[in-house]
Simulated scan of single mutants.
Amino acid sequence: MVKNTPAFVLRPFEGLPGEPDWVALKEVVPAATATARTTAEYGAKDVLVTTVLPTGWRALHRADGVILLALQVPGGSGDASRDLATALLEALDVEAGTAIESIGLPTPGPRLQDVLDLSVPFEVTLQESFAYWLAPDTERTADLTAAIEDADAGIIDTVKLTAADSAYWCRMGDREFLRWSQPHEEQVVLDGLARLHAARESGFDDAKFVGYFRSSGLVVPVWELTRGTEAAEVEAPLAAFVPKFAAALADTTPLDANARRARAGLVARQVTLR
């Protein structure tokens, strides 16, 4: 007998406030939280969406009653929204201080779009430590402190920029990058990037376009910045680039031969994330 499992959903976060930020926190941001709230039907409960939780937990009903929901989790049913909603609803039902370590393969049921209040903005806060995993009054044992310090060691410097929505500066070793999660359909973004790349205008202020990630139906273009570039130094040049990029995205004329070649090169450099 074939089980009735959810069908694959290309854009699982479509329709949620801040869809590009959901994708960024799921894939390219190491440590961050964001705000959400369940609907009245599900208790109007505040939810702290987080990039990760200890040892891959799906969710946590923290000792002080706060609900944490992790995005960077392994596997799933093919519909990340349904998987996350399943973990969230389980976390709401368990006692404070309980983690949802796994959820199995969810059967058809509510999705985040059904469970969350869509009027609540998805406001992202970058975190420098995973200490928020613990309730403020939790006793810090040596083991807990060591576990958090070990997790913190893997956090790369990341800053959410203000010049463009869902744009993140990060430093990896001695190199800096801009990762800009896009709200548009993949083909629209690729065509826009191809037009700019063919015209040698895909970079800005010595920032070099180097490729893009694909995840959850969206595209995250990546630029490598001049060595040593701080986050604040990217704001002005990015703000100046935004209108040019918007114009390229809005252009619906057929790609010329140079742009078609550029587009083929872009596709060859893509990295698909889960």
Rank of each mutant, 00 (worst) to 15 (best):
L266M: 12
P243A: 08
L196D: 03
E139L: 12
L16A: 08
C170Q: 13
T35V: 06
A268M: 11
A135D: 12
P221L: 09
W180L: 09
F213G: 08
F13C: 04
T125G: 10
A63T: 12
E90M: 14
D83G: 00
V222R: 08
P6K: 02
P243K: 04
R62C: 00
A59S: 04
L112Q: 02
A40W: 08
E101L: 10
F177K: 03
I155G: 04
A232R: 12
F177P: 01
R260D: 10
R261L: 14
F204N: 05
G192R: 03
G97D: 09
I155A: 08
E224D: 01
A264K: 14
L16G: 04
E90A: 15
S202G: 07
R261N: 12
E90I: 13
G56K: 07
G43E: 07
V2R: 15
V271L: 14
G217R: 00
L48R: 15
D152H: 00
A96M: 09
E101V: 13
A259V: 05
A31K: 01
S102P: 00
D206Q: 15
V9P: 02
S102I: 03
E95L: 11
L266H: 00
P30E: 11
E95H: 10
E224L: 05
D251V: 04
T35G: 07
T253Y: 02
D157C: 03
S166T: 06
D157A: 15
V220R: 00
V267A: 12
S119G: 13
